[in-house]
Write a protein that binds this DNA or RNA. Structure first.
Length: 290
DNA sequence: AGCACGCTCCGGGCGC
DNA sequence: TGCGCCCGGAGCGTG
């Protein structure tokens, strides 16, 4: 499950491999073609496949950038700029190879859905086992509304104040804190893993209502989120189930997680509890988190 | 208009 | 071995 740190790792790996390269053309899998023929928008969103394939042709990749859990692949042709927006979904992964057979893990190799042939001969490959990922070709970020509604980057100066302001809105203050910190319009890039961790380190029960948490405690929580995201970036992200960095690379943050998918609390050793909040499994220590 | 809710996309992995 | 069910980011349609 790639969250901000994992996406950051992918972007750091991709930059030296694809920035400055030119896309000759893109090939899409039979599955993508069949799904689109069936009226679905599997992986390629917002345009039909012909348009997508036509538009990326001969585009130069000028810059690869992370924003929240999105990867923005900035493109340029004839002095005109565009953005290829990518989301890894649950199981998306990028590979830069000379041949698809270099993708050694079968489950990624057999779910290759987009192959961008680069002018240097290499293949820039998007694989996605569950097809929750996204490739969206747009002129500018402002052309896709959800992207304009995202909270600031958590490392930005104004991010904490933005979080506090959002918490005061009626629609958020009645909700469980965990649901709110995982909302991309409140904090960017915090998913289940890092929400679970930060709530544990600040001893807040994930079900606690936003309005019943003091401002000081909210700031403490925000800082804990920033800290755990940074720690994870430094450790290459958490490699859990289907997350891979570029070319199948792994991180080691999963070994440092204190609460996520734990059966016992590492502090008091009591059994942890799991509840479902907004459809997501939320693990906490009933003894340490109040 | 703005919000809440449910649905959808899917295959791997698990329990039985 | 095989079947059925569960899981989950995020956008979107509905009420």
């Amino acid at each position: 499950m790639p969250e901000l740190p994992e996406v950051e790792g992918v972007v750091r790996d991709l930059k030296p491999l694809v920035e400055g390269k030119v896309i000759e053309h893109v090939l899409l899998s039979d599955v993508v073609h069949m799904s689109h023929a069936d009226g679905k928008q599997t992986i390629v969103k917002g345009t039909d496949l012909d348009t997508f394939q036509l538009m990326v042709r001969d585009m130069k990749i000028t810059k690869v950038e992370r924003r929240a859990k999105y990867i923005f692949i900035h493109l340029m042709k004839n002095e005109e700029s565009f953005v290829l927006v990518n989301h890894l979904g649950m199981t998306g992964a990028w590979f830069v190879v000379d041949d698809v057979t270099e993708i050694t893990e079968e489950k990624f190799r057999k779910h290759v859905h987009a192959i961008f042939k680069l002018r240097n001969g290499q293949l820039f490959v998007f694989s996605d086992i569950r097809r929750f990922g996204e490739l969206r070709f747009i002129k500018a970020i402002s052309d896709h509304k959800p992207l304009t509604l995202m909270a600031p980057e958590p490392f930005d100066e104004d991010a904490c104040d933005f979080f506090l302001a959002q918490c005061k809105k009626p629609k958020y203050e009645q909700k469980a804190i965990k649901e709110v910190i995982m909302d991309g319009q409140v904090i960017s890039g915090c998913g289940n893993i890092y929400a679970t961790e930060s709530l544990f380190t600040t001893k807040i029960r994930p079900t606690k209502k936003v309005k019943s948490i003091s401002k000081a405690k909210k700031i403490e929580l925000f800082n804990a989120i920033v800290d755990v995201l940074k720690e994870s970036i430094e450790n290459g992200g958490s490699t859990i189930s289907d997350y891979r960095s570029v070319n199948g690379g792994a991180g080691s943050m999963q070994d440092r997680l204190k609460m996520y998918s734990r059966k016992n609390c590492p502090v008091c050793l009591k059994e942890t509890t799991s509840v479902v909040i907004a459809g997501r499994t939320s693990t906490y220590c009933p003894n340490c988190q109040k």
